[in-house]
């Protein structure tokens, strides 16, 4: 029955989708910045010798990875008011995305740091560098390059995950699709347009990831085996 597919209705709702697209884009950017902050903190804790820092970070990462984002989102959405913290849905959504993605970002950065060979660290030690000098001058600049592609991969996951915020009625892309579907009983028009918008974001990020990889390959760094 898709012969009734109405492009005209989509055009009518275009401003709403434009608004949703922009909302998804900027709330993803803010959440990703939050995820980086959370991830770097967790990773720094995880790499310490002190168990008092290491263990909480590990537990946090495991708990986040073993539970669904939707349950985490509801945990904050229904739980925060209970603690007397009343926040707009949008803030709760951004908080949930940052806390969730942060755990994955922490693992990506950790893998990047651990991928730097022992010999690099030893070269730093042998030339008399302190721990922080070795980190700053030798390890982190190399780890940074290794982590860019997987971090962009995580950004793609985050953009898609942000669709769940529509379930706590944040106005974003998926919500726009839902509105069109329920106002006009046109789910096909609503959700196909939504999907197309996400695909545009996906291909944008994918192109960015591919070109970053090419850029990193062109820079003659070559991992020494």
């Amino acid at each position: 029955m898709l012969e009734n597919f109405s492009f005209r209705t989509i055009t009518e709702y275009l401003p709403l989708f434009g608004y949703g697209f922009a909302a998804t884009l900027w709330l993803s950017i803010v959440s990703f910045a939050g995820a980086l902050a959370v991830g770097i903190t967790l990773c720094a804790m995880n790499l310490q010798r002190s168990q008092a820092l290491k263990v909480p970070a590990k537990i946090y990462i495991d708990v986040i990875r073993a539970t669904p984002l939707l349950a985490q989102l509801y945990f904050l959405y229904f739980g925060l008011p209970r603690l007397g913290v009343v926040l707009p849905e949008l803030f709760i959504g951004i908080l949930a995305l940052s806390l969730n993605s942060g755990a994955y970002v922490a693992e990506i950065i950790r893998a990047g740091i651990l991928s730097i060979s022992r010999g690099q660290v030893e070269a730093g030690i042998a030339s008399g560098m302190t721990y922080f000098q070795r980190m700053r001058l030798v390890v982190l600049p190399q780890a940074f390059r290794v982590t860019i592609p997987p971090l962009l991969g995580q950004a793609i996951v985050l953009v898609k995950d942000s669709a769940l915020l529509s379930l706590i009625s944040v106005s974003e892309l998926t919500r726009a699709g839902q509105l069109l579907a329920s106002d006009r009983f046109m789910p096909a028009e609503g959700f196909i347009t939504t999907a197309a918008c996400y695909l545009a974001l996906y291909y944008g990020l994918k192109t960015l990831a591919a070109s970053s990889e090419r850029w990193l390959r062109l820079r003659p760094t070559g991992n020494l085996k």
Binding site: A123, Q142, T221, G222, L224
Partner: peptide, 8 residues
């Protein structure tokens, strides 16, 4: 070092 360990 045997494996040079230059900073790539």
């Amino acid at each position: 070092f045997q494996s040079f360990n230059l900073y790539p």
